[in-house]
Nucleic acid binder design. Structure first.
Length: 787
DNA sequence: GCTTCAACAGTACCT
DNA sequence: ACAGGTACTGTTGAAGCG
């Protein structure tokens, strides 16, 4: 019997001493299926020492009772041929231990791939793709299993991956919780889950609410609901780190088990910190928030607002410090219930905008859907590489600790300060990936100093002199060529589709996933944590990059194009189409890379600073780069003022009008008419509180939260305001949730927020800071008028 | 003992 | 827990001053 299924989740079980791979999927006809594959034997490799034959190692290894098979195989390591011994064994969990024993053998130099987990091993070796379609020959199982699916099958052969852009109809359940503690952060040991709000993608919404703070019925009702709806995907926001561990512990306190999965077990935290719910995909949307760099404070309401799910201004927002007071009051409790329901509605909305990307990323890099969000960028790239190089027999190097040694990066040209009219921004498209392709830069093509060059020749990087063989193509070249061409192909396909169609949505998500992996490839190459880290690989890419951009500048100037600015792979030049055309042509011929106008600014303003400017686009939009407007660590009021100044200055060319505007805003601040929220400054904690060498405002604010019983962790964004009083700035920082407007130091906001942000722009028009303060005479005028 | 100032710490941005 | 290059603010402690 043949089954077609889309792979949702994968896990393994050891039954009767035998490992089994469990593939959870959705079949073509919409049935939920579990396919059990008992045929896959885990293994790892041992590479013999110089002068030792692999056969000798095979002999030595046979003495271990746990070895089910050992054979010599041909593999590669950093592109070089190696004879290795592949060692199979029954128990996947013992592999690291077995590898250690083998490592100790006389003839063994190093073991490999003992750090590849069994289920990933299975996916890679069988070319099984998460969130992808497969066909498989199966039979009915001999025994009955107590699992929640329509059908259980036993595999008779390995699954065959089938290329398809179809996605099955997935059942999605979103949830959020509210926990109650009379003071400070709720603790699962003692504080109840008072509200659980659930929504499902069939349009239903439910709330489970505690009576008299007894949450056992709430938890049980939630479990029943999940069981009855039987979702394929469970989504939350912060659910990996907060909600699911809390619910799990809370159930334990009541002596029950949180059962949400398809086999009757508890959720458990696993690789990269994801919470696994067997048979379903548990997705924490927070793990995808990094994709939206424009959102500075990555909480649910901000992300929902940004993605157009629910406007912040139309939401009921309650700070966590205020949950208790809302829960305790019968009147305010209604608001809390509304807030919670809206949270889940936001989760569902965000899910609908992220899940296509998540599934595409999962199938592209080969990580299971519930892992791919929690895996850091470097690991996503790495799994994509592992998946690819398996096909060419490249052994996966061990991750090892290395000292950090810096290397030179890109060139940034000093900008020509002032306002420039009609400026074209030229860009090298995917510069580093294309450089790596063009010069065959790869871990497996690198020729170390002293090694004789191959007859087919080599490329030598400028400045740094690193050499890379021309032939055969390295795996970076193969991977990047594939990624670049696939993205081009998808993008041309998209042009013939309606943006509203399902196919468009899926393909667009796919090209985004491809883009993410492509763009991260250079960074991966220079990451000391990378398994295939070779510093010269990254160093050569930037060296070629520097030479390319420098040459481009020379060519531009030779053609009479004034270069206003440039950063890494971009050049800002006067928009003169014929010259630009010539430039593009010459660069293509001489350098072999493509440079294209990316956008044209009607007007663009530079100060003396690099990486900070503001351009006016033909459609009237402002493009603010690097300035306070786009920074998350300035008070909103200052950012708004600067943005308005930029608009006035670039559109109306009237610095005088801008100055008047600043006067008005400063007046409003001093009268405390500015909304309190616009005074909040947000900064991240980048380390534990006690590891800071100097005292800083956001750190002191965090300590105050801690004192109030709130847990603080690295990575949290602390929102604070500066209050009036004596002493250093850090002594006057207070978490905004604990502060009153009355105590705010408005002069700080005038002097240290508004003035610097405004003056940054207006100093270009010779406006002095003093001139930005509202004139006292204005007050007099007002008073005279009054009298 | 006070002010001044350069070095440093810290954060967030750009490509 | 993908790279290096850059701007900027506030803290710190030594230098400079009298």
């Amino acid at each position: 019997m043949k089954v077609s299924f889309w792979l949702l989740d994968i896990n393994y079980e050891v039954r009767n001493g035998k490992p089994e791979i469990w593939l959870w999927g959705i079949s073509k006809n919409g049935e939920r299926v579990l396919i059990i594959d008992q045929s896959f034997t885990p293994y790892f490799y041992a590479v013999p020492k110089e002068g030792v034959s692999p056969e000798t190692v095979v002999e030595q290894i046979r003495s271990f009772s746990w070895v089910s098979q050992a054979r010599t195989v041909k593999r590669r390591y950093f592109g070089k041929k190696v004879a290795a011994v592949q060692i199979f064994c029954r128990n996947p969990e013992k592999i690291p231990k077995y590898a250690k024993a083998v490592q100790k053998l006389d003839g063994v130099k190093e073991c490999f791939e003992d750090d590849i987990r069994y289920s990933m091993r299975y996916l890679i070796d069988n070319d099984v793709v998460p969130c992808g379609w497969h066909e498989i020959e199966v039979e009915e199982p001999r025994e009955k299993l107590d699992v929640k699916v329509d059908h259980v099958y036993v595999a008779k052969a390995s699954p065959k991956h089938v290329e398809s852009t179809l996605t099955p109809e997935l059942k999605i359940l979103g949830f959020s919780i509210i926990c109650y503690s009379s003071k400070g952060m709720p603790k699962p040991e003692k504080n109840p889950v008072v509200i659980i709000s659930v929504a499902t993608n069939d349009g239903r919404e439910r709330q489970f609410v505690a009576e008299s703070n007894d949450d056992k019925p709430v938890l049980e009702a939630f479990m029943r609901y999940v069981h009855d709806f039987d979702p394929d995907i469970i989504v939350g926001y912060g659910s990996n780190r907060q909600d699911l561990p809390y619910l799990t512990k809370r159930c334990q306190v009541h002596g029950i088990r949180l059962r949400l999965d398809r086999i009757g077990g508890e959720p458990h935290t696993s690789v990269y910190g994801h919470v696994s719910i067997t048979g379903r995909a548990n997705i924490d949307l927070y793990d995808f928030a990094d994709e939206f760099a424009e959102v500075k404070v990555k909480n649910l309401e901000n992300l929902a607002d940004y993605l157009g799910v629910m406007k912040r201004s139309e939401r009921t927002i309650i700070e966590d410090v205020d949950y208790a007071e809302h829960w305790e009051s019968p009147e305010k409790r209604k608001l809390l219930l509304k807030f919670s329901a809206e949270n889940t509605r936001c989760i569902m909305g965000i899910a609908s905008r992220i899940l296509d990307f998540a599934t595409q990323l999962s199938s592209l890099v080969g990580l299971p859907l519930d892992h791919v969000g929690t895996a850091a960028v470097g690991f996503r790239v790495e799994w994509f590489i592992i998946k690819h190089v398996h096909k060419i027999g490249e052994l996966v190097p061990k991750r090892r600790e290395r000292p950090y040694t810096p290397y030179a990066g890109a060139i940034v040209l000093p900008p020509k300060p002032g306002i420039h009219e009609n400026i074209a921004v030229l860009d090298f498209k995917s510069m580093y990936p294309n450089i790596m392709v063009a010069y065959n830069i790869s871990p497996d093509t690198y020729i170390p100093p002293g090694e004789p060059p191959p007859p087919s020749g080599f490329f030598e990087a400028p400045e740094v002199g690193h050499r890379f063989r021309k032939e055969p193509p390295g795996f970076y070249k193969e991977i990047l060529t594939y990624l670049i061409s696939v993205r081009d192909k998808i993008r041309s396909q998209l042009k013939s589709l309606s943006p509203k169609s399902v196919e468009y949505r899926v393909l667009d998500a796919r090209q985004k996933a491809v883009k993410v992996v492509t763009n991260a490839s250079y960074g991966y190459a220079g990451w000391i944590g990378a398994r295939w880290y070779i510093k010269p690989v990254a160093e050569a890419a930037t060296a070629w990059g520097r030479s390319i951009i420098s040459n481009a500048v020379k060519i531009a100037e030779k053609l009479g194009l004034t270069v206003i600015y440039g950063d890494t792979d971009s050049l800002f030049v006067k928009h003169e189409p014929e010259k630009i055309e010539k430039l593009s042509k010459e660069i293509g011929e001489k350098i072999g890379l493509e440079i294209k106008p990316d956008k044209i600014y009607t007007r663009v303003l530079f100060t003396e600073a690099k990486k900070r400017y503001c351009g006016l686009l033909p459609n009237g939009q402002l493009d603010v780069v690097g300035l306070e407007v786009v920074r998350g660590d300035w008070a909103t009021v200052a950012k708004k003022v600067q943005e308005k100044i930029l608009e006035i200055v670039l559109k109306e060319k009237s610095p005088r009008k801008a100055v008047e505007y600043v006067h008005r805003v400063i007046g409003e601040i001093r009268e405390k008419k500015t909304p309190f929220r616009e005074l909040v400054i947000w900064k991240s904690l980048t380390r534990p509180l006690d590891e800071y060498a100097v005292r800083a405002a956001h750190v002191e604010a965090a300590k105050l939260l801690l004192k109030e019983g709130w847990e603080i962790s690295t990575g949290d964004k602390i929102g604070y305001v500066i209050v009036a009083g004596e002493g250093k700035l850090y002594e006057r920082a207070k978490p905004y949730v604990l502060a009153n407007y009355d105590e705010v130091d408005t002069e700080y906001y005038v002097q240290k927020q508004i003035l610097p942000a405004a003056s940054r722009i207006l100093q270009m028009f010779n406006v002095k800071k003093e001139e930005l303060l509202p004139p006292k005479t204005a007050e007099k005028t007002k008073l005279t008028e009054f009298f």
